[in-house]
Design a protein around this nucleic acid. Structure first.
Length: 821
RNA sequence: GCCGGAGUGGCGGAAUGGCAGACGCAUCAGACUCAAAAUCUGACGGGGGCAACUUCGUGCGGGUUCAAGUCCCGCCUCCGGCACCA
């Protein structure tokens, strides 16, 4: 047989798969479906190794499931709206669409060169009118359900990207994309009411066993549910009350002051008449202008000022001074807190700094707390002291009883709070989905009528970087008539966050050609939910939370059946080089195209799947790639050698053939087990390597083989390898005298249990738990006989000499342990 | 601080409570070759021993068990998420 030249055979098969539409699928109610999906990429220009890893994992699963008889949906598309396209326009004058489509073409070609089994007829591009038309339609659904609203708010602004950002897109106070420190800005913006789904997003996490624990934890943290009590303080001498939220209402008798966020709307009134008012205003301004990094940094000092006003304690009527401080967040709870310095570390620090009184109202079990000796707040639960009628209750009882009393007084109630904020979706950018809203001077915001969708992105815009959306520069786009009253009106010029586009694309794959609707319910019900989703951990919150939110809203709307989009989630690890992330600035980037060109796609895929378990980080190793290439050459050669061996047709297999056949069926069992839901690609491949090694040892020893045995070995070796390395297996398959069929259409093999039977097994023989010998015994030998045989082993004599046997444990097929004294 | 995950040879990594280190990389040796590469075969955790063999060994300290990388208790370290969220 000729040499293994991957470049030739890979091109050949890729062409055939493309021409025959080999992986196109249709709904088939008689077949069990399996939907495997890799997160679609942003068309940045070129695939990187992370993509290759992502797609290789998905492709093995898709091909394996198909061979198992499932109707497999395995689609691919592009998350094609986004900033880089627009930046290219600003920098180089290339229209964003042109830049994007040329990148898509290039990356699609690179995907094809990896031999991935996609149904390309279902390719989805979020930037095309036929897609974003439906994104707009979905926005209208949200709007009609009261889940999309516009409000004036203090929002996160990135100076470099010239746009606002969602909370989820701010990492440590910086823009997630360009790392520029985020500043606060007052703007009127569109939000989606994800907070209305906070409880369901949280609760359903408990019923998602197919998701990694760490992702669920991150989402739980992000949603940040807490149960507490909200109640109001009266302001002395004013007809005003200040609501506060606390999880430690049991410490209510320890309140010695209260604190408002500087942004709190009551502040101007509270400082009226205070001679220090100007100073306070100055302080408020300083705090407001600080960015999040400074304001929340660990080193940040707690700063505050006394307003001059007092609140009244709801139970004791005591005067409680009202302060303003930088450590209270306006966005969370009520923007005001009761301060209990004895039992809260922040309040403690603040009280010490400004010399405010401290009252101990919770004691530990042995009543050993002495305020004068404390150098920290006591923030754990205990029992209440100096707390009026509640004294003596445990903290938990105290919380219940005090909340009940506040309720009876009509000034408070139990309250659940979330850290999660509504999703800010407006972006002051061009290359995104236009928000289908018309702003009418008389009617306010009005939805674009459904029949007028899509609101098409205009081409006549200026891409001069500025603080407003480029869409404002298109006169034709901007001016329109109000659909309600017909008056002159202007269009909304912000576009939607691109995370909206990716929050429903998995549904579009089920029905990608539908012109009227985002997707047909019946088709969606057939394919959804995604059985296996694969992608990077960086989307643990962003994309994966938004998609879950969308799915729930669509379920409420009756458009889908299921509450969750992704049944099983696999978060692949990163591809590292020299101990760090591959990056252009470090200069350690290995390009997939280069590797594929040098070794072929099969080698690249095999290396990535073999070198590390999928969820762990993978260290790139040039030598490791060589090793994978070497293995494929061995496969190529051994198939040839088996075909060249002279064939016998003896009535019985010889011992070596039998053991080779046993090895084959062990391998089938192992690979099937490793691929079925567990995705241990690395150990699956290593077991196939062991089979190949055994096949080599056979040809070293023999120059003939039983024909049926040779045939079974080679056939099954190729089938087992097919999901991992589709080209070389297909090529070799065609060299066998098989019918006109692709190896990828063959049924996955069954284990022949009779092939696994053995006559004899080797047992380890231990004395007091230490292995001292091994022995081979017939499988059916009784425990008693095994024990007798073990005792008589000569190697054991010196370990047994002069000792008495206490116990003998026989574990069939594994071990014998003689316990002696 | 709270939550989650992980610690095994020179390296990537294997091990339903039952012979720790499968498979691969690197290294060394042998075969083939005039030679090299490629290829095939073998060795390969540490200490001691010419050897048969022996002893220690899965982050640390205890425990359960005939038997622990695996189970339990107490720590340490690293990675990730959240964090002035009241």
């Amino acid at each position: 047989m000729e040499k293994y030249v991957p470049q030739q055979i890979e091109k050949k098969w890729q062409k055939i798969w493309k021409e025959t539409d080999a992986f196109a699928v249709k709904e088939d109610p008689n077949k069990k479906k399996y939907y495997v999906l890799e997160m679609f990429p942003y068309p940045s220009g070129n695939l990187h190794m992370g993509h290759v890893r992502n797609y290789s994992i998905g492709d093995v699963i898709a091909r394996f499931k198909k061979m198992q008889g499932y109707n497999v949906l395995h689609p691919m598309g592009f998350d094609a709206f986004g900033m880089p396209a627009e930046n290219a326009a600003i920098k180089h004058g290339i229209p964003p669409a042109e830049w994007t489509y040329s990148n898509i073409d290039n990356m699609t070609r690179q995907q094809e060169e990896l031999g991935l089994s996609y149904d390309w007829d279902r390719k989805v591009l979020t930037c095309r009118e036929d897609y974003y038309k439906h994104t707009q339609k979905l926005f209208e659904i949200f709007y009609k359900r009261g889940l999309a609203y516009k409000k004036e708010a203090k929002v996160n602004w990135c100076e470099s990207c010239h746009t606002v950002l969602a909370n989820e897109q701010v990492e440590e106070g910086r823009c997630w994309r360009c790392k520029t420190p985020v500043v606060k800005k007052d703007l009127s913006q569109w939000f989606l009411k994800i907070t209305a789904y906070a409880d369901r997003l949280l609760a359903d996490l408990d019923h998602m066993p197919g998701w990694p624990e760490r992702v669920k934890t991150m989402q739980r943290n992000w949603i940040g549910r807490s149960t507490g009590t909200q109640f109001s303080f009266k302001v002395e001498g004013m007809d005003e009350t200040i609501p506060v939220y606390t999880t430690r209402v049991d410490t209510l008798y320890g309140v010695t002051y209260m604190v408002l966020a500087p942004e709190h709307p009551l502040v101007p009134k509270l400082i009226e008449g205070n001679p220090e008012a100007d100073k306070i205003r100055e302080f408020i301004n300083t705090v407001k202008n600080e960015n999040d990094i400074d304001r929340t940094s660990e080193a940040a000092e707690k700063l505050g000022m006394f307003t001059g006003s007092y609140a009244l304690h709801p139970f004791t009527g005591e005067r409680v001074p009202i302060w303003i401080a930088n450590y209270v967040l306006y966005e969370y709870g009520t923007g005001a807190v009761m301060a209990v310095p004895a039992h809260d570390e922040r309040d403690w620090a603040f009280a010490k700094k400004y010399d405010l009184p401290v009252k101990l109202v919770v004691q530990n079990d042995d009543n050993s707390l002495v305020l004068a000796d404390m150098d920290n707040a006591y923030h754990t639960d205990g029992h209440l002291v100096d707390s009026g009628e509640f004294t003596g209750l445990s903290s938990a009882e105290g919380r219940k009883a005090i909340t009940k009393k506040l309720e009876e007084m009509g000034i408070g109630e139990e309250k659940v709070n979330y850290r999660l904020r509504d999703w800010l979706i407006s972006r002051q950018r061009y290359w995104g989905c236009p928000i289908p809203i018309i702003n009418c001077p008389h009617c306010g915001p009005v939805l674009v009528p459904e029949e007028d969708l899509p609101v098409v992105l205009p081409k006549d815009v200026d891409f001069v970087a500025g603080a407003t959306s480029p869409l404002e520069t298109s006169e034709k786009f901007l001016h329109c008539k109000c659909p309600k009253c017909g008056a002159d009106a202007v269009r909304e010029t912000d576009t939607m966050d691109t995370f909206i586009d990716s929050s429903w694309y998995f549904l579009r794959y089920a029905d990608p050609q539908n012109a009227d609707k985002p997707f047909d319910r019946e088709k969606a019900d057939y394919w959804m939910p995604v059985d296996q989703y694969i992608g990077g951990i960086e989307h643990a919150i962003l994309h994966l939370l938004y998609s879950r939110f969308f799915m729930k809203v669509l379920q409420d709307e009756g458009l889908v059946r299921d509450p969750e989009p992704f049944t099983n989630l696999l978060c692949q690890g990163m591809v590292l080089k020299d101990g760090g992330k591959m990056s252009k600035s470090v200069g350690n980037v290995v390009s997939p195209e280069e590797i594929v060109g040098k070794y072929g796609a099969d080698t690249a895929r095999l290396f990535i799947l073999f070198t590390a378990p999928p969820e762990k980080d993978l260290a790139w190793s040039d030598q490791g790639v060589e090793g994978s290439y070497r293995f494929l050459k061995r496969v190529w050669a051994i198939v040839g050698r088996y075909m060249d061996l002279s064939k016998t047709s003896a009535p019985e297999l010889n011992e070596d053939e039998k053991s080779l056949r046993r090895r084959l069926h062990q391998t089938i069992a192992k690979v099937t087990e490793d691929l079925d839901g567990k995705f241990n690609f690395n150990t699956a491949i290593s077991s196939i390597m062991e089979l190949v090694n055994a096949m080599y040892l056979y040809v070293e020893k023999h120059d003939s083989i039983h024909e049926a045995c040779a045939r079974e070995l080679v056939r099954n070796l190729l089938i087992l390898l097919a999901p991992f390395v589709p080209h070389i297996t297909e090529e070799l398959w065609q060299h066998l005298d098989e019918p006109e069929q692709s190896v990828h259409d063959v049924k996955w093999p069954e284990v022949d249990k009779s092939a696994l039977t053995v006559d004899e097994v080797e047992l380890a023989v231990q004395v007091n738990g230490k292995v001292r010998a091994t022995m081979t015994v017939p499988v059916e030998m009784s425990r008693e006989d095994i024990a007798e045989k073990a005792k008589a082993l000569p190697e054991l004599a010196k370990h047994l000499e002069g000792k008495t046997l206490v116990k003998c444990i026989v574990v069939p097929r594994r071990v014998v342990n003689l316990v002696v004294k």
